[in-house]
């Protein structure tokens, strides 16, 4: 063993042969490693839980969902583009808005209507989020005799198909 340095030279740095890197202990036995069980919660899908919690918070009586989704509660009558609706708010700071629906966007909690009206000869449009907690009710004021064959009726803007002054026409009707 000529390559091994003498004890006097290296002293405490001298290591036994087994701990050298190139030395492999021939052994067939594998060390058994403990594996611990996961903390099992049995949770549901997080996105679904979030959506359910929002629906129960914002729409406990299903009236918002029934506006756009046919069900037994509404006998299949839902909002359609062309309907004239009035949106009422909880607070006095936001006045009620009447308008004709020119788009319905069905995106779950993000569902919204686009309402159009002519107020003092100026075309006015309003995006209404169905699940906005400040909205107290959405009433259908009038339905058209014949529906147009589109959901998105942007093409009516600024031509003969455009909405008139809805507030005035409703007053006249009464």
């Amino acid at each position: 063993m000529s390559f091994r340095p003498t004890l006097s030279k290296v002293g405490s740095l001298l290591t036994p042969l087994q701990s050298l890197r190139s030395y492999i202990v021939p052994s067939k036995a594998k060390k058994i490693i403990d594996v611990y069980n996961p903390l099992n919660y049995g949770r549901k899908d997080v996105m679904q839980t979030y959506k359910d919690s929002q629906y129960t918070k914002l729409d406990p009586t299903f009236w918002r969902r029934d506006l756009i989704k046919p069900s037994e509660r509404n006998n299949g009558t839902v909002l359609r583009s062309g309907d004239i609706v009035r949106v009422m708010y909880n607070t006095r700071t936001i006045p009620a808005f009447t308008g004709q629906i020119i788009k319905i966007s069905k995106k779950g909690l993000d569902s919204n209507l686009l309402l159009r009206n002519l107020i003092s000869k100026v075309g006015v449009e309003l995006h209404v989020k169905l699940f906005n907690p400040l909205i107290s009710r959405i009433d259908v004021v009038r339905r058209p005799n014949q529906y147009k064959p589109r959901n998105r009726q942007y093409y009516i803007r600024g031509n003969r198909l455009d909405v008139g002054d809805l507030d005035a026409s409703l007053r006249k009707r009464r």
């Binding site: 997080v46 996105m47 979030y50 959506k51 929002q54 914002l58 779950g108 909690l109 993000d110 989020k129 699940f131 906005n132 907690p133």
Partner: peptide, 10 residues
């Protein structure tokens, strides 16, 4: 990260 959604301030 699981996805996105709306939040309404009551």
């Amino acid at each position: 990260k699981r996805g996105m959604g709306p939040w309404f301030d009551e």
